[in-house]
Simulated scan of single mutants.
Amino acid sequence: MSATLAYVDAVDLLDADHKLVQKLFLDYQALCDNGAAPEAKQRLALKICGDLGVHTQIEEEIFYPEVRAAIRDDVLMDEALEEHAEAKAAIAQIQAMPPTDAAYDGTVQQLFATVMDHVMDEREQVFLKARYSTADLRGLAPRLYARKKELQSGKPAPMPAGKKKVAS
């Protein structure tokens, strides 16, 4: 599988997700600027929320535990999990709101700001430390990709025994 994987390593895969979600947020802003129907904006917002949900889950289940063990910086990794919690709260809020709610666009834009702050922190700190650590980033990429596909299929397999989420 790794021979056909389009990503160099785990950081490359996760950063590709970051770039995709940034594009989706910009597409959402374009819908707002063009006066798109609330339903069209909601479809895109829910796609963003779904993509972010999958991304945060694979980071929390696979990437963060490996990086935490390799870099031994619990404060940094706990901070990343706190940022995920903020994003998840905004995602839940968006998913529960009708698209006609006056606060809908602002809530999506707030999620965008939260996510982009997290992305910058992750790129400048977590990813950088991971690259200079003993973490097997190449070996993590196929695992992240496989789990991502499972989650996207809507029929996620449970995490294998011995793999546990890191508590925040």
Rank of each mutant, 00 (worst) to 15 (best):
A90D: 02
L144Q: 03
T107D: 00
L111A: 03
K149D: 05
L13S: 04
C32S: 14
D33N: 10
S2F: 13
L76P: 04
S2Q: 11
D73G: 03
R131F: 06
Q110T: 14
A37E: 11
P38L: 02
S168V: 13
K164Y: 12
Q22D: 11
F127Q: 03
A87N: 04
S2I: 12
K164F: 10
D136E: 10
N34L: 04
D12P: 09
A30Y: 05
T56Q: 11
A157Y: 07
C32V: 15
S133K: 08
P99R: 02
S153I: 09
L46H: 08
T134M: 10
I91D: 00
R143E: 08
G35N: 06
L81N: 09
Y28P: 01
Y145A: 11
V119A: 10
S168C: 10
N34S: 13
A10N: 05
K88S: 07
E60D: 15
V119Y: 04
A85T: 13
L144P: 01
A167I: 10
R138I: 09
K164E: 11
A92I: 01
D33P: 02
Q42E: 07
Y104P: 00
M1S: 11
R138K: 15
R68V: 00
E150F: 07
P156V: 12
V115D: 02
D74P: 03
E59D: 08
Q95T: 11
Y64S: 04
M1H: 06
L14I: 04
A130F: 04
K129V: 05
I71T: 10
S153V: 08
L140I: 05
K163H: 14
R123Y: 05
E83N: 09
S168E: 06
A80C: 07
Q109E: 13
E86W: 06
E86F: 09
A87W: 02
T4P: 03
H118K: 07
D121K: 15
Q125W: 08
E39G: 06
E83A: 11
A102S: 13
H84F: 09
P98T: 13
L24I: 01
A130S: 07
L151G: 06
Y64E: 02
D51A: 06
E39A: 14
G53A: 08
M1F: 08
A89P: 10
T134P: 02
N34G: 10
D117G: 13
S133F: 03
H55F: 03
K155G: 11
C32R: 15
A102K: 14
L144A: 03
A92V: 04
D121Y: 13
Q22S: 12
A80I: 04
A102I: 06
A69N: 05
Q110G: 15
G162V: 02
K41V: 00
D117E: 13
Q95Y: 05
G154R: 08
K155E: 14
M116Q: 12
K129S: 09
D12A: 12
L151R: 10
G154Y: 03
L151V: 11
L76S: 15
Y145C: 04
I58C: 00
D33Q: 12
A37H: 12
Q22I: 10
V108R: 00
D33A: 12
K88T: 05
I91K: 03
L81K: 13
T107F: 01
I58P: 00
Q95S: 14
E122I: 12
S133A: 09
F112T: 07
E150V: 07
T100K: 06
Q125G: 12
H55L: 02
